[in-house]
Structures are given as C-alpha cells and as structure tokens.
Design a protein around this nucleic acid. Structure first.
Length: 256
DNA sequence: GCGACAG
DNA sequence: ATCTTGTCGC
C-alpha cells in the first residue's frame, strides 16, 4: 500500500524548523478519536475458535532494525491472531536518532515495507509514541496519517507527559492516565496511558508498563483497550513483537 | 546553566 | 536502536 496524504511525507533533508512545522500540521490534521470500521470484540492476539463467527480486522505490527547506515523496515500482518503476510525493506538511512524527530529517521524504511504489502490493514501498531509527543505528532500519529490508517503507538519508555499516579508495581490489566505537561507545546489533558500489560503474580521483581497513545483515528481509551487485547502473555502486543522478530531476522540475513 | 529525552 | 554472558527466578 502507498501513502495517501503525501504532503506529510517526512523529508530527512529538511531543516529542523521545517520538520517541526510539518509535525504541527500532522497534529492539526490527525484525529485522536475513534474512527474505524471493525468491532473491538473481534480483536484477539491469538487464534480463537470464535474467530470464524466474527469478522476479524487485519492488524499490522511495524518495527525497525538498523545495520550501520541501513534501516530494515518490517511489517507483520495478522488476522484473528494468525500471520497472513510479512513485508520488509532495506533502505539507506543517515539521519540520526533525535528525540521528537523519530519519524524522520524511520519513515523511509516503513514506507518502503508498506509498498510491498498486499493486504489492506485495518489498524497499525507502531513501536513508539503517537500523541505522546512534544507536538502530538509521534511516529504512530505521523505514519498513521500518512497512510490514513487507524493506528496506535506502543512505547517502552515515556517521551513526555506526566502519569496521574505512581507507575510502580501496577497490577496486570491496570492503566494510569498520561497527561500533557509543559514539554507538550500543543495541548493539555489526556494524551495516553501507561498500561500494565504483564506483571509477575508475586515476587521481588516487577515489570514496567508500556506507554500507549493514539496514533490516528483512535481515541486514548480505545488505544489502551487495543494494546491490551493484542497481548498474549508478553509485555508487548503480538503484532509489535512479531514485527520486531521479523526485522531482526531480515537484518541477520543481511549480515551473512 | 539544568533537566529531559520514543528508537 | 546497538554492543553482549551469565544468571536469577518461576
């Protein structure tokens, strides 16, 4: 599939000022409310007997791996918890990691991988933030809007924003609201959730939550619901986890 | 100057 | 993200 809102294509050659202006345009155009066709109850992380009686959406996980100045983009498509397609691409990438400008580093490989994808996804799960971003235009929001695809961001770390309460030792299945702080220039209020997708039953060690935020066409509570439903015994949602493994696999073949 | 910082 | 062995715990 190809980008539809091409005016939002990230260009790593632009100046930082132009990049940030583009992000403000992304935030102003993206929609942080539910606007998708599928039923939340048909979303599952693993194959289910009742899947046949339902109409499960096609959900893609998106991730990257890097090898010197090359980026590997990987997309894994699932339907009812089963992998239906995988697509990848390797592109040159010299743009560095800069907090707040991640999409300018990773979009090239992602767009190239999506170009090789045959199925039409109903939802994309990105490894990184969406609305939890200085200008509400994180990777998941930017790329979701670029393809006009409902999307969410699932990050392992918090870029900005402040949790409503302590995130220490949360019980599995719980969530804590993340609100915009003074580092978020474009809005106030709820921008995502810390979601405890997995936790040890008891013991001395604990697992950190993931940070889920709306990408495009998904509201904050639904984004958290989706991330939760897509987990299957691991901290990260299956689409993201499988895309991560696939990116590493492609990278490994590249090294040989 | 200080602090904060997805992947 | 990437560089990397062993090791603690269920």
């Amino acid at each position: 599939m190809e980008p539809v809102n091409t005016r939002f294509l990230p260009d790593p050659a632009d100046s930082r000022e132009v990049m940030e202006d583009l992000q403000r345009g992304v935030a102003a155009t993206a929609r942080f409310t539910d606007d998708f066709e599928f039923d939340l109850d048909t979303v599952s992380a693993t194959p289910t007997l009742t899947n046949h009686a339902m109409d499960p959406p096609i959900i893609v996980g998106v991730d990257q791996a890097f090898l010197d100045d090359r980026a590997v983009g990987a997309v894994v498509a699932l339907r009812g918890g089963e992998v239906v397609e995988r697509a990848s691409a390797v592109v040159d990438c010299d743009f560095p990691y800069i907090p707040g400008l991640l999409s300018f580093r990773e979009a090239g490989a992602i767009v190239a991988a999506f170009a090789d994808l045959d199925v039409e996804p109903d939802l994309a799960v990105f490894d990184g933030s969406g609305r939890i971003h200085f200008r509400e235009a994180g990777l998941a929001t930017h790329l979701g809007l670029l393809f006009d695809l409902p999307s969410i961001g699932v990050a392992k770390g918090l870029l900005c924003g402040t949790p409503d309460s302590s995130l220490d030792d949360l019980p599995e299945g719980s969530r804590v609201a993340i609100r915009a702080d003074d580092r978020v220039e474009t809005t106030d209020g709820l921008i995502g959730y810390a979601v405890q997708t997995r936790q040890y039953d008891s013991g001395s060690r604990t697992i950190n939550p993931v940070y889920v935020s709306p990408g495009h066409r998904v509201g904050p509570p639904t984004a958290a619901d989706l991330a939760e439903r897509l987990c299957a015994g691991y901290k990260l949602p299956e689409p993201t986890r499988l895309a991560d493994a696939y990116a590493d696999e492609v990278k490994r073949d590249l090294e040989v």
